[in-house]
């Protein structure tokens, strides 16, 4: 399975957010690093079909990004999100299952399963309104996984998680990434250190560096800073 971006470009009124980026994502966890405003969110939205690029294409095994079939195998966690005010955690997941097209029985099964996985069992029947930032984030992670996605795209997934939750999240992602395409964006380098198989470093809408990353290769933070610095 391969997700291919071919020369995608997105321009806002006076700024190029993504500048002719081409790359291929394969099975495994890919980390997308870059400062705030480097165009990470724009890129991820394009990969999810939410934003239509001004030029270029995104395909997965020949499927276009804007098709139903593509979205069917996609899981996406946006950077910022909300919830309908009357929802409990469980309602939220059931609602997302419905929009993702899951059948009722599957939806119930996956909801219970994921509530357990992200550790929201005690809070599942409470209103999302009463959740802490970390709990809300975990709920977002759960909805991204509910359709058993083959392509998982998460924008700043560790935001708001406490250190313990971060470790749990990392284990979860490492497991999922074994046979799926996972793309995580972050500006916190240490989040990726132990789980990313590959790295992409973005600056001002362009890809500065991409390649394999193994933990033996030294300090990721240093590497990242040197890359960003080199191209000033």
């Amino acid at each position: 399975m391969e997700l291919t971006a071919d020369r995608i470009t997105k321009q806002y009124k006076n700024k190029i957010a993504v500048d002719r980026m081409s790359f291929t994502l394969t099975k495994g966890v890919t980390g997308l690093l870059g400062a705030n405003g480097a165009g990470k969110t724009t890129l991820m939205r394009i990969l999810c079909g939410i934003l239509v690029p001004d030029g270029g294409t995104v395909t997965c095994d020949g499927m276009d990004v804007e098709t139903e079939e593509y979205r069917e195998i996609l899981g996406y966690l946006p950077q910022e999100f909300g919830y309908y005010p009357e929802f409990t955690g469980r309602d939220f997941l059931l609602y997302m299952s419905a929009v993702k097209g899951l059948q009722k029985a599957d939806a119930l099964k996956k909801t219970e399963e994921l509530i357990e996985v992200v550790g929201l069992k005690d809070a599942a029947r409470k209103r999302v309104r009463t959740y802490s930032g970390g709990m809300k984030q975990r709920l977002g992670i759960a909805q991204a996984l509910i359709n058993d996605p083959q392509i998982l795209i998460m924008d700043e997934p560790t935001a708001g998680l406490d250190p313990q939750e971060r470790i749990r999240f990392r284990n979860l992602i490492a497991n999922i990434g074994k046979d799926r395409i996972v793309l995580l964006s972050t500006h916190i380098v240490s989040d990726l250190e132990h789980i990313a198989d590959k790295l992409m470093i973005m600056k001002e809408g362009r890809l500065l560096w991409q390649g394999e990353w193994n933990t033996g290769a030294g300090d990721l933070e240093e590497f990242y800073i040197s890359r960003i610095g080199d191209n000033r």
Binding site: R45, C48, G49, I50, E68, R71, E72, L74, Y76, P78, E80, F81, M96, A98, V99, K100, G101, Q143, N147
Partner: peptide, 8 residues
Amino acid sequence: EFEHAARF
């Protein structure tokens, strides 16, 4: 954004 990226 959630709904946009979902199948329906």
